[in-house]
Amino acid sequence: MKSIIVTGASSGIGRATAEAFLEQGHKVGLIARRGDRLAEIAVKHKDAVVLPVDVTDEGAMQAAFDKFLDLTGRLDVLFNNAGSFGPAAAIDRVELDDFDNVLNVNVRGMFIAAQLAFRQMKDQDPRGGRIINNGSLSAHSPRPDSVCYTVSKHAITGLTRSLMLDGRDFDIACGQIDIGNARTNMVEDLNARFKAEDPRSRGLATMDVKDAARSVLHMADLPLEANVPFMTVMANQMPYAGRG
């Protein structure tokens, strides 16, 4: 059994992945702001630990990690997932406060979680562990009106590359999963917007969020001598590759 923390565990990819870990018999710390939604998961899984906290609050995150580690004694895996899309608009229509909010969650929040995990994995005995950052296809091929989200996910790719290098001496593996159009509330909201703008549109091609979760599970199950630096998993009909 591994000890795992999942941020953004209350919905979407985070929730699906947390449930996949729990079904495999792992001890999973569930981090998100909505404690009631985390409790829904814990009712079904005895190895779930509810940790309601805002990922941007450094002190509260430290307390959440400490609570989990008091129960487990170590941290094997962090799925660094919590994120926000922000306003769907071109840059000239984005308020700076909205931009700051996206960076606060997607960059600061993920930095804090990675820092706490790295510190624990470096010092524990036996040392080491795995950090999996949730990137996005937006770090490679953005969609229109996604400037806040896209900027933040390019930053996460930088975080991943730095942690891959810095973690080697301490048996800490870091990789990134870039997920395209898993059926989450965020993607369904985008689909609704596209269809409202063009009723004839077929909308976004999507895939089951459980397929994304299985991909994270594969990365987490690898021995520490192996790593997946970057994995892309996406709806097969997405226009990600090729030219039009």
Rank of each mutant, 00 (worst) to 15 (best):
S201A: 08
F79D: 04
D169P: 06
D178S: 07
E23D: 15
A90G: 04
M231P: 09
A173F: 03
C148G: 10
A235Q: 11
Y240C: 06
A139M: 15
G59D: 09
H154Q: 01
H140L: 15
D66W: 08
D169Y: 09
S201D: 01
L75S: 09
A114P: 02
L22C: 07
T160R: 06
G73Y: 12
S201E: 01
N227V: 15
M61S: 10
A88W: 00
A39D: 11
M234A: 12
D198K: 02
G8L: 07
A20E: 08
N236W: 12
D221A: 14
D98T: 10
G175Y: 13
D123P: 01
D198Q: 03
H218E: 14
D211R: 11
S10E: 10
T206L: 09
R183D: 09
P199D: 01
A48T: 15
I112T: 11
L224W: 01
N80E: 03
E225N: 02
V53Y: 13
L222A: 01
M231H: 12
R161V: 07
C174H: 11
D47L: 13
K210M: 07
L103S: 00
R161P: 06
T56V: 11
F194S: 05
V147Y: 13
E23H: 11
P223D: 04
G35S: 14
N236Q: 14
G167T: 05
H26L: 11
I177A: 05
L190E: 02
I41T: 14
R168F: 12
V147G: 07
A182W: 02
N134G: 02
A88S: 05
N236R: 13
L217W: 13
A9G: 13
N106A: 00
A18E: 06
N133D: 09
N227Y: 04
R200I: 00
L137W: 10
A90W: 09
E197N: 06
A212E: 05
G167K: 12
A60R: 13
T160P: 12
G86E: 01
L163K: 12
F194L: 10
Y149N: 05
V209M: 05
I13D: 08
D198F: 00
N81P: 03
G109H: 02
D123F: 06
L165M: 14
G244T: 15
A192S: 02
N236F: 14
A89T: 02
D92M: 08
V102Y: 03
A192R: 08
L137F: 05
L165G: 10
R15I: 07
M207P: 02
I179D: 01
T150F: 09
D166F: 06
K67T: 14
I5C: 10
C174W: 11
S3Y: 11
M110S: 05
V151R: 03
F118M: 04
L78H: 09
V94L: 06
P239T: 12
I13C: 06
H45N: 07
D189H: 00
G29C: 03
V147F: 14
L69S: 14
K27F: 06
S141N: 15
F118T: 01
S138N: 15
G135N: 03
K195A: 02
T157L: 14
N80W: 08
L159I: 11
M110L: 12
V209K: 03
E197G: 05
V209L: 10
R108Y: 00
E188N: 02
P52H: 15
